[in-house]
Each structure stands twice: as C-alpha cells, then as structure tokens.
C-alpha cells in the first residue's frame, strides 16, 4: 500500500508520487491528504498537487522542515508510506469567474496546478504567478504553463521575472489595470497574508489555502482551528480555503509556531547524528 513510484527533488521540495488508487479516484482540486512516513511519524497534511485516476497515483510536494519530513525526504522509490488518508478538506469552488489569478510559493508552486487546471477547464482566463528565491528553484513550470493563459515569475534576486514576490506581481497587474475576478493563493503563511493584503484594497475575492497544524484531519481535534471573520473554523473540515481578507493572521502565525521549540531541537540533533553516521560510512568505504 502507498508505494512510492516516483521521487525527485528541487532545492528541498521533494516530489513524491504515491500509489493511492482510492484517493486518486476521489480527489478534487484544492483537497489534501494526511501522510505518515512510518508508524512512529507525525501525521502531516499535504496538498494533492496532481493525480492519475487510471494509474491510481497522486503527486505530493513535501518540504523537509522537521524530523518527520526529513524521513519522508529520505524515502526511496519502492518504499511505502505508512499512511495516506484522504482526500480531505472541501474542494476548491470551481466556476467561470472570468479572470482568475493563482499565486504559489514553495509547495504551492505545485499545489496550485490542479486549481489552475480546473479553472481553465471551467472557461476562466488563468494567470499563474509563482515565486522563489532564485530562478533554478522553480519546478513543474511546464505543466503549469499548459493550464495557464499566462505564467508569471517573481524571484527574490531578480534572476527571473519580477524582482520580489507574488504580491509584487499582483500590485504590478493592478497598477496596469488588469481585471482580476478571483484570486487563489497557496504557500507559506507569510506569503498568504501578504498576497491577501495586495488584493484587499481592490476587494478582489481571495481564497487562501491555509496550512495550519493538523492531527486527525477529520474535525475531531481542533488543532487546526483558525479565526475567520471572528469565528472559530477548522482548516481540515471547513477549509483548507478561506477568505484571505477575513483570516486572523497574527493568531495563525503564532499557532503555527507552537511546536517550533520541540521540533527544531529534535531535528537538529537527529540531522547531526545522521550526518555523523554518513561521514563515518564514507570513511569506512575509503578504508
């Protein structure tokens, strides 16, 4: 079950293609799965970035940020994940909005693909914007280009496209008088907040895919709760997409950092130990 059939990495973004026929059949754009590398791993929510119902596979992009994701990053083709649960969350609302802007950073570069594809199929004009620090850090561009009318880039160092981030491209578009009927953003919380600010003054309907800490993913625990429009919402069952103009960002930033101390502490000691082991093995090989 849940065998890894393909795996690659672009600058710490690990593409993992997994056998999960049930999910590949049922999943819709905007939904996620919860995965566990091993029996002792954390349960980690990951956006389903593509799927092949016929082959029974789903595509996940995972960033190595802690001990559980480190293990996922180290798994190989032929290995199996211990658990893949889903599809979870409410699918993106897809209809003909007119002009749709999709912004993605980090795993969101891959994650916006199915939403872009569905929006395109629904007759929208799709403008995709992706951001990275440096031009070589982009991935999945070709696929995204195929489902977008326009693909725009933003890089921190200016090596490709606009120098800056997704919201800088949005500001440029608005200055140029580009009409935007709906925006979707997916990426780190800081990016989601900044992009929501960019669309606020023009009151552009804005959906952000929140990535709060989750445990069960079915509404049972409330770990992922966020304040949206002054009300408690569960990102796992009410979301993951919410109105970016209504999210209490300060609260979300703080809740996302809740386990930073525990996780970083263990991650550092864990990585260090394994690096030592690796070097030791290299020494052995040299004799």
């Amino acid at each position: 079950m849940f065998e890894i059939v393909e795996k690659s990495e672009v600058f710490n973004v690990h593409k993992i293609v997994v056998k999960a026929p049930g999910i590949a059949r049922a999943v819709r754009a905007g939904q996620f799965v919860i995965i566990m590398g091993a029996e002792y791993s954390e349960r980690i929510p990951v956006t389903v970035s593509d799927w092949d119902a016929a082959a029974g596979t789903i595509v996940l992009y995972v960033l190595e940020v802690g001990i559980s994701t480190l293990e996922l990053a180290r798994m190989k083709v032929g290995d199996s994940l211990f658990a893949v649960t889903g599809p979870l969350g409410v699918p993106s609302e897809i209809k003909n909005y007119g002009t749709v802007v999709l912004g993605g950073g980090c795993y969101g570069i891959g994650g916006i693909y199915p939403i872009a594809k569905a929006c395109k199929e629904a007759g929208n004009k799709v403008i995709s914007i992706i951001e990275a620090r440096y031009k070589d850090m982009f991935y999945n561009e070709k696929a995204l280009m195929e489902v977008s009318d326009k693909l725009l880039y933003a890089t921190s160092d200016g090596s490709k496209g606009t120098k800056g981030k997704v919201e800088d491209v949005v500001y440029e578009m608005l200055e140029q008088g580009q009409k935007i009927d709906q925006a979707f953003f997916m990426g780190c919380t800081q990016m989601l907040e900044r992009c929501s600010e960019a669309t606020r003054s023009n009151s552009i309907p804005t959906k952000v895919a929140l990535n709060s800490i989750m445990l069960d993913g079915t509404g049972m625990c409330g770990a992922c709760r966020v304040s949206v429009g002054g009300q408690i919402k569960f990102a796992c069952v009410d979301g993951p997409e919410f109105d970016g103009h209504e999210v209490d960002w300060n609260e979300l930033h703080s809740r996302k950092a809740a386990y930073a101390e525990q996780e970083t502490g263990v991650y550092q000691s864990y990585s260090h130990e394994c690096m030592a082991e690796k070097k030791f093995k290299q020494e052995l090989e040299r004799g």
């Binding site: 445990l215 079915t218 509404g219 049972m220 625990c221 409330g222 770990a223 709760r225 966020v226 304040s227 408690i232 569960f234 069952v237 209490d248 609260e251 703080s254 809740r255 950092a257 809740a258």
Partner: peptide, 21 residues
C-alpha cells in the same frame, strides 16, 4: 466528533487544547 470550545476570549491561544487533541 467535533470538540466544543468556549466562546470566551483567548480560546485560540497556544497552550489551549481540546481534550481530543
């Protein structure tokens, strides 16, 4: 299923858990 939280200020602070979680 879903846990209930009190409708009082501070319910989403770090360190507030549902018993379920």
């Amino acid at each position: 299923g879903l846990p209930i939280f009190l409708d009082i200020p501070g319910m989403n602070l770090n360190g507030v858990f549902s018993a379920n979680e």
